[in-house]
Design a protein around this nucleic acid. Sequence first.
DNA 1: AACAGGGGCAACCGCTTGCCG
DNA 2: TCGGCAAGCGGTTGCCCCTGT
Length: 373
Amino acid sequence: MGHHCCSKQKVKRGLWSPEEDEKLVGYISEHGHSCWSSVPKHAGLQRCGKSCRLRWINYLRPDLKRGTFSEQEERTIIDVHRILGNRWAQIAKHLPGRTDNEVKNFWNSCIKKKLIAQGLDPKTHNLLPANGGGGAAPAATTPFTISAPAKSAFEVAPAPAMVPASLYDIVVPSPTGMLMAHDHHHRAAAAAPMPAGYPYTDGNGGGMLMSFSDQNAGVHASSMDFMNGSSSSSSMDHAGGMANCNGFSASMGASAFMDETATMWANSVEPGIGVVAGMLVAQQQQQRQQGLVVQEEVVLGRPPTALLNCGAATTGAAVHADNSASVEMVDVSSAVYGSAGAGPTAFDLELMESCGMFCGGAGNAIDQLPWDC
DNA sequence: AACAGGGGCAACCGCTTGCCG
DNA sequence: TCGGCAAGCGGTTGCCCCTGT
């Protein structure tokens, strides 16, 4: 069965010949592809427009990088896949010169098997229940189990079941960056001790700081889109009733992708108190535009009793000085998703987990395993 | 040398999304 | 608001090639 777009015409299918490639490249190089359905006709090809488009995107585009994936690319795929799941197009955006089809094929033919061989579930990136590789690690991690320098001290309790999903959403007041503030007036009495060097210890009783930097400011595109929609991650199920409608989508002027360089700090969040987060803008867009490595910070904390929407945007200085007064917080419904520019943004605790895992470097199950390609 | 099986990859299928009249 | 169309996207298929027997 052919494409509906070309069912009325006799089209060729199957592998492309060099002559066909030449025709397509020649036509697109000269005229572009404003309308794919008209390309085969004008290029003299007995193909449907969809086929031409695929051939161009996946094979003939001049900016494609052919050849085997590097180890760095491989790790990037795994890291991003842990966050996004099988969203190949999004993953491919982090690999210049690679197509979604190429990434998908590489995943299915190589990476997936490696993960399985290492006892990891390729869907969740958690250790498989029947893992025979020692069994020291749990079969699954909760959304708040952070691989931090001292893991036992930083395990954050799962959110209480009474907390609705929307409570995990936050508003981003600006498109340039973020810092999640926390409530230090209502710190947990028995909160885990802060680790040495924790930059928000003074007066900041509770909270979780995550920082990350962008090593590829010039590579990563201008948007940061972690809306997970129908995330396949099972870890969300542990989040006390959190539906998988939670997501993270920050349209940033020149965003950073949370990559391997990040570090994460965390301490406890008491059960029974909803986890919330505030955000603050980091004034770093200019740095990014200059191609500099940018450090961003995220602090996740708790509200005193209920979630508040404090409205006004905060500044970095304000939060650093007194983050209790300027928590930019938030009870938002899932309707915030998809807002453009500086609009509300959803925050995904699964993303936090994922970033914590692959950014932390200390406790990542994958990182702890040998990496033998 | 011939054959079978498996892996890798290009291409296709069909659903979803976005745009436009 | 609705329908049609084109593009985007992820899943799947099938062919080709390599390797082992």
